[in-house]
Design a protein around this nucleic acid. Structure first.
Length: 111
RNA sequence: UAAGUAAGUCAGAUAGUCGCAGGUAAUUUUACCUGAGGAAAGUCGGAGCUCCGCAGGGCAGGGUGCUGGAUAACGUCCAGUGGGGGUGACCCCAAGGAAAGUGCCACAGAAACAAACCGCCUGCCCCAAUGGGUCAGGUAAGGAUGGAAAGGCGAGGUAAGAGCUCACCAGCGUUCAGGUGACUGAAUGGCUCGGUAAACCCCACCUGGAGCAAGACCAAAUAGAGGAACUUUGAAGCUGCCCGCUUCGUUCCCGGGUUAGGUCGCUAGAGGUGCCAGGUAACUGGCAUCCCAGAUAGAUGACUAUCAAAUACAGAACUCCGCUUAUAGAUUUACUUACUUU
RNA sequence: GGCCCCUUGGUCAAGCGGUCAAGACACCGCCCUUUCACGGCGGUAACGGGGGUUCGAGUCCCCCAGGGGUCA
C-alpha cells in the first residue's frame, strides 16, 4: 500500500479524474491523469471484476502498485493518476505490463 | 506386479536487496517481532455477539423424521438396525404413518380398489343339429394391457374353479427369548390387506425477527432528539391474519440540507500443541505450554542464487462448528481381487 | 461482507407431475402482387448442468453454474 498522501481515496475524486482528466490507453491498461493542487503525485489503481477472480485481481493490483512506486520519482509535477487494468491483462508477466506502463507514461508526457 | 477400496499428510524451502500493514521499544526515523487457506470460496445448516419491550397470546406457516449416543447447537458427527449395489475390500439410502381421512394413478386395458371383456363350466330353450346361438347362474386357473391386476409355486380337490385343503416361501397378528432401543430368533393363529406422504395430511420433536452496512460512543459544523397545539384516523417495524406493543405522525413559529468524519465493536477463542485418563467411537476431563492477520478504496509484491522441476484450486473483512464444491504433484498406512514365483 | 430473486427456440414469454412442451416477433419455403410491403398456408428451432423421489419430472427435493437486485 502506498502512503496515504500518495493515494486517491474517495470515490468522488476518482469520478473527477474520469470526467475532467485526460486519457491514454494501452494494450493492458488505461491511464487517466489530471493536475491537482497538492505538492505530490497521487495514484489510484482499479482492477474490476472483469479482470478475474480475487487472486488475479489482487496480484495485478500489487504489480501495478509496484510499477507506480518505482516510477513515482521519474514523474514530474503534481498529478492525480488512475491506472485501470483491462481484462486482457489476465495472466501477463510483469515485464510486459511494465513495458506498456512506461510507454503510456511517455505518451502522456508525464516524465 | 496390476487393478481397486478406505483413512490421512504436505501444499515449496533457504539466503540477500528494495517495498507494504500491524504491534513493541526508543524517540523523529530507526531497530525487532508477526503477517491469508485447506478450502479463506459457495452462503446450505447451526451457534456466539448486538439491537428490536429479554423474546408477547391465538391461528396459520416453516423445518426435521429408523434406534442409541456426541455436541453450545445443527439438516452435522459416531456406533448400530433394516434395505440396495459390488466377486470382494467397501460404498449408498429424507428409512415414521397408506388399517384416521382426502386426492392422484395419463395412454393402454373388461377392471387401477375392489373387477366378469374373451374364455372355462352348469342348467333351460331355439335352430338348417358330432355343431352353433339366446337367457339365467357359477368361476379369478388361462388370455390381452400396464410400472403395478387382488399372495407366489407345487400337490390334492372340483362340473369348472377357488387358501377350499396341505407342504415350502412372503406378509399380518399374538406369545416367549435376547437387546437400553431400532430389531432379531423361535413357536403359534386366522388365512391375505395395490402404489404414491421429496401429493394434501396425521403423529412426534424443534422453531420470535433482523443482521457487524448489527449496534454503541465522541467531537465538529451552515444544520434541532427545538417550542406550542391536535387526534386515534393514517404510515412503518414485530414473516401472514386477528389481538397486543413500539416508533413515526398533522398544524403553526424560527432555521436549514442532498453528504468530509473519528473511536469502539475487532480479535485470547466452545483457541492451538503435547502428555495422561475415560469411552468401541464421535467426544469428554485433567495437567503443562504457546499467543498465532486485524486492514478501512482495503496490507504479502519485484529481482537474484541454490535445491532435477516450482506447479493446482485459490485471497481474511465480527467470530466459531459443520456441510458442499474446486484442487497440480508428492507421499504414508491398512485392506481386497487377479496373475506369477517360492 | 450480509440478505434476496431469476434461468424454457435467435428474442419476448405461457405451462395442474401424463398426448407431439402453448403463443407472439424473427428466420426459411410456397401462394397473392408487375415488384416490395401487408395478408394467407406450411416448416426449422428450446426446458442452464448433475444427482434423487416417482411407473413417469420443464414442474417436487438436494447440490453446482451463470445472470440480476438490494443495504448507511
Amino acid at each position: 500500500m502506498l502512503h496515504k498522501d500518495a493515494r486517491i481515496c474517495t470515490g468522488r475524486e476518482y469520478q473527477q479524474v474520469y470526467q475532467e482528466g485526460k486519457r491514454v490507453a494501452g494494450k493492458y491498461i488505461i491511464i487517466y491523469y489530471q493536475k491537482n493542487r497538492r505538492p505530490t503525485n497521487r495514484f489510484g489503481i482499479v482492477t474490476s471484476k472483469k479482470v478475474g477472480h480475487a487472486v488475479i485481481r489482487n496480484r495485478t493490483k500489487r504489480q501495478l502498485r509496484e510499477m507506480a512506486r518505482s516510477a513515482a520519482e521519474k514523474i514530474q509535477g503534481n498529478y492525480d493518476i488512475v491506472v485501470v487494468a483491462r481484462p486482457s491483462i489476465k495472466g501477463c508477466a510483469y515485464e510486459i505490463i511494465e513495458k506498456d506502463f512506461l510507454l503510456l507514461i511517455k505518451k502522456a508526457r508525464l516524465c
